[in-house]
Design a protein around this nucleic acid. Structure first.
Length: 308
DNA sequence: AAAAGTAGCAACCGCGATCGG
DNA sequence: GCCGATCGCGGTTGCTACTTT
């Protein structure tokens, strides 16, 4: 009997627990309680503070939102760079990564990765965990962030002191040769998606493109085959461009290649016009690669000697 | 102008690790 | 060493605002 009553009481307690978005009153209560008693003992806190929340929920709210040193707003290029760099080292160890970004929470970093980074992989139909995608991040995206960091005069304060020069950072992330042997690896065929969504896509190796749309206003240099003579980490920097985000934010839309650097890298008119036609990858306009051929990187690696 | 689709993010959930009795 | 309570992490969900059709 009493057991049954106890059980009902438990159910009632459970029913009373609030869920969903926090109200201003709840936030105030939590802040006040922590100001008086400090963090930790979350279940006790939940009971004693008068909040009808679980300790877990209180902890989450505090750590991810209310804590005074939480930084809000867009991630800076250097923060983005660090996330990419650390994720390449540690994978989805969000809390560990967050420890290196003061004021940023693991949740925020996780969300960044899922909404921005993984989105790119989805759009390119590449497995976000694949070596190809990781290399693309490392050798295309990160150098672009470095450039932004330089141009915005916000030289990285979060990055190790031994990498605080642009050359040093480029040397760290850019190898003297392309990083990986793609061409002879059968497994890589998996990473050559058909791109049905791309009306004018031609498979790697077919070089005789004919533009599907004209881009007369663009005076594009001819496609130059073969790797640049001075391909090495710092002196050859295929990733630099002067592209800027239209809205001044630090989103991925700042990552597009400009036409000149794109063609210097070996883009054909086809590549540029097709991709710029927004038929190929997406029409969102904020893609990392949506102005170029997503498979460019793989193609160039193969062209530049196949064997690395 | 309205409906549908999408992106971003706060919050929840499950599970394993750790702590303390 | 065992066991329950608590904590922390990573994955997932759901809501809201914004964009596109």
């Amino acid at each position: 009997m009493s057991e049954k009553r106890g059980s009902n009481k438990y159910e009632e307690d459970k029913m009373e627990l609030r869920r969903g978005p926090w109200t201003l009153e709840e936030d105030t209560l939590l802040i006040h309680y922590i100001a008086c008693h400090g963090e930790g003992r979350w279940n006790l806190l939940a009971k004693c503070s008068g909040l009808k929340r679980t300790g877990k929920s209180c902890r989450l709210r505090w750590l991810n939102y209310l804590k005074p040193d939480i930084k809000r707003g867009n991630l800076s290029p250097e923060e983005q760079f660090l996330i990419l760099e650390l994720h390449s080292k540690w994978g989805n160890r969000w809390s560990r990564i967050a420890q290196h970004l003061p004021g940023r929470t693991d949740n925020e970093i996780k969300n960044y990765w899922r909404t921005r980074v993984q989105k790119q992989a989805r759009q390119l139909k590449i497995d976000a965990n694949s070596a190809m995608f990781r290399d693309a991040i490392r050798y295309r995206w990160m150098p672009r962030l470095l450039e932004k960091m330089g141009s915005s005069q916000s030289m990285p304060s979060l990055i190790d002191s031994n990498t605080t020069t642009m050359a040093g950072m480029m040397a760290q992330i850019t190898p003297h040769r392309p990083p990986r042997q793609f061409s002879n690896n059968p497994a890589m065929h998996y990473y050559y998606p058909p791109f049905e969504s791309c009306s004018s896509y031609e498979p790697p190796g077919s070089e005789n493109h004919s533009p599907t749309t004209s881009s007369a206003s663009m005076a594009l240099p001819q496609f130059s085959s073969g790797p640049p003579d001075n391909y090495s980490g710092v002196s050859f920097n295929p990733f630099m461009s002067s592209g800027h985000s239209a809205d001044g934010t630090y989103g991925l839309d700042a990552m597009d290649l400009d036409p000149v650097s794109a063609t210097q890298l070996g883009f054909s008119v086809f590549d540029y016009t097709t991709a710029n036609n927004n038929n190929c990858v997406d029409n969102i306009g904020d893609g990392l690669w949506n102005m170029d051929d997503p498979l460019w990187y793989v193609r160039k690696l193969n062209e530049w000697g196949g064997g690395v």
